[in-house]
Design a protein around this nucleic acid. Structure first.
Lengths: 240, 240
DNA sequence: TTGGGTAATATTGTTAACAATCATGTCAAC
DNA sequence: GTTGACATGATTGTTAACAATATTACCCAA
């Protein structure tokens, strides 16, 4: 499992990354679906990968678990989280509550420079998709949503969005119909047009439908990705 | 500083609390304004208070810092967070985005048992207030808001609310006009009536106005509580 | 008395060794 | 050949000693 998205960590360029860096890197890897749900994150492997002591890795894993991106099992180690259908529902409910408001605020407060930056981001998203660069396409697609919270000028919401977007990647990895595009960038483009028109309400509305579309493409009754839970499948209660 | 809200930890009844318990206890103490912003949380004191090793305390403090309830200063230790005016604005913006939706969902999904429980909670809130039990009154008042997220059946939102409510207590401690009631329980009662009428929309609307009222009672331009930041006050840039 | 500097103390941060637990592989018994 | 127990190895969890840093107290000089 390659955690270092493209180039390895040269001890010269980045010696001793802090836990914030490590958390950030793992967040990124999860968003890009390089780390599928259930992946074991062993301390020794991470120590080697990031070139830090065990203590820092353990702190990083604890932070990641507090954001529900990794699950900590006592005496068994850390694993990339495997959201349940119920959790998926909750994540999308939270997103539908938050993001229309975020989009509205972002339009109200965006400077011309913000809109330009958003435009460049959209182009990069488009390029990555057409170049077949799946990892980068997914990452940029998620980043679009957190960028709105940033433009809205609210770091609390930004942090919430980073967590929700990352967990959404895990959810799509488990419940997403394979082969179907999740975040259609034309819907992102529509939202972008609301910025150009300076129309906060349509941005909010478009974001709402965008999220409903993503959610509609999930098969919450049958997990397609990740390993099946044998216990739940064959347990005495039967599959529920 | 008394962390153990009422009774001390008897080693018989709870030997070795986990970090979840410790985090929960400190959250509670902050909500109740027993721990004012800026309070030093020394490791040794916490070790003694909870009867656990230093490792567990450090993990707890890290978790608390990831929720922005505690600030970690390198080589200086942990302190109860002192939200800035900007952070206060962000917290309330997030609450105004989330809580009307939470209230709406809660009304839609509340069972009769939920409404009864909410009613009992409101009575306890009322009693605590009239008994002059300030700490408990504040705690119950905050708990009302997280309880709605619980009734709404969304643990993601519940976790968000716990954090936002706790930070709000800190914000009121710093920017609240002293002597003014923050969460008027008659507004809680109004929201409660929306439950009885089974009117999700009025619950959402009432929650919005409730939050605006709380925010309106803040003096974000002059922090009343907590120690003033001398550096910012007399720094070369002057107060900004 | 005040101010600066230095030593002493206390507190936090890190490391490494140790203990406990779980996963794996082997072997005997059926 | 399969199942169960058992032993081995690997991984996680904890403890304690050590190092680094900041805070405090103290002393001397202006």
């Amino acid at each position: 499992m390659n955690l270092q998205s493209d180039r390895p960590i040269e001890p010269s360029e980045a010696e001793e990354p802090g836990e914030e860096d490590i958390v950030e890197r793992i967040f990124e890897a999860v968003v890009e679906q390089r780390l599928p749900p259930g992946t074991k994150l062993s301390e020794s492997a991470l120590c080697e990968a990031f070139g830090v002591g065990r203590m820092r890795i353990r702190r990083s894993l604890l932070l990641l678990s507090s954001r529900e991106v990794v699950e900590l099992h006592a005496n068994r180690g850390a694993f990339v989280a495997s959201p349940t259908a119920e959790q998926a529902r909750e994540v999308f409910e939270a997103r539908k509550a938050l993001e229309p408001t975020i989009a509205r605020l972002a339009v109200q407060r965006a400077t011309e420079a913000d809109i330009e930056r958003l435009d460049r981001h959209l182009q990069a998203e488009h390029r990555a998709h057409h170049a077949g660069n799946r990892h980068e396409a997914i990452r940029l697609s998620g980043q679009f949503h957190t960028m709105l919270a940033e433009i809205a000028g609210n770091s609390v919401m930004q942090r919430m969005m980073k967590e929700l977007v990352t967990r959404t990647s895990l959810i799509i990895g488990i419940f997403g119909a394979p082969g179907i595009r999740n975040c259609r960038d034309d819907e992102h483009a529509q939202i972008m047009s609301a910025f150009r028109r300076r129309s906060p309400d349509s941005a909010a509305r478009l974001m709402g439908t965008h999220l409903r579309h993503i959610e509609a493409h999930l098969r919450l009754d049958q997990q397609t990705g990740a390993g099946v839970d044998i216990v739940r499948l064959f347990g005495k209660a039967g599959p529920r």
